[in-house]
Write a protein that binds this DNA or RNA. Structure first.
Lengths: 127, 127
DNA sequence: TTGCATCTACGAATAGATTCGTATATTTGA
DNA sequence: TCAAATATACGAATCTATTCGTAGATGCAA
């Protein structure tokens, strides 16, 4: 039950999780400097968000030195899975295919990507 | 600018839009009876939500008779497009392919659906 | 050592979404 | 006809997310 909540992070939390998933371990300042590129909120805002995420159990933190170090506790793939399934249900009436087509249709996709998907589908059919 | 906001309906608004997109025209009661199956909130809650959606321009309403009749003004495909693109960016770091694979991997997809997607990809490659 | 920069903690303001209670008007059926 | 059912309107409570200011602690450099 605790986990179920965490699978649906807020938008701000997701932005931070993205960074932690990519970087591994980060200080608040690390995260904040990356966030600043796309939005302009203060340092203490980022700090507060990460503190809340820690309370919720979304991240772990190492407080052994003055500057705390954070890591994502939430599993990236599980979170992605949960969010994508939710979107299929809520936005595409349960049809994964429709979502996929919508996604590939507009969001300019390279040929390499398309081929990768084709291969993936072939493997999927074999089962 | 007005439209840009509407492309991102809240979760409750999206639930209602889904119903309106499917049914076409609905009264508040129509919508509420469908919503009730999956959640338990009062009738006046649904009413209020739909009134707010009308204020925002998400729906039109015909008030010629006592019981008002609502219709979606928001375009379904545009909304889907917007939401799916947003998810690709926010959750999958901009990789449509990764999202597609994640979507098809778990969300049990029928062979028919997979074949439909394959055909779609073939057409896409030809361009 | 002392002052400046940097860090955490925390309370509180703000904004938006959601929910419901109540008042009031209209319809309808016994 | 008139009482019950059903509609809308609307204010307000509640909840959550986001934001920031300020206070106090710590580290560092001149």
């Amino acid at each position: 039950m605790a986990e179920a909540n965490q699978l649906k992070p807020t938008e701000s939390e997701l932005e931070i999780l993205q960074i932690l998933w990519k970087k591994g371990s980060c200080t608040v300042r690390d995260v904040h400097e990356i966030l600043e590129k796309n939005k302009d909120s203060g340092y203490t805002t980022t700090l507060k968000l990460m503190q809340i995420m820690h309370e919720k159990g979304l991240v772990s933190r190492d407080t052994s030195s003055k500057t705390h170090i954070y890591q994502a506790l939430q599993n990236q793939e599980k979170t992605q899975q949960h969010l994508v399934n939710k979107m299929i249900d809520n936005v595409f009436n349960g049809s994964a295919a429709r979502m996929v087509m919508q996604a590939l249709g507009n969001h300019t996709t390279s040929k390499d990507e398309i081929n990768a998907i084709k291969e993936y589908l072939d493997q999927l059919s074999k089962k």
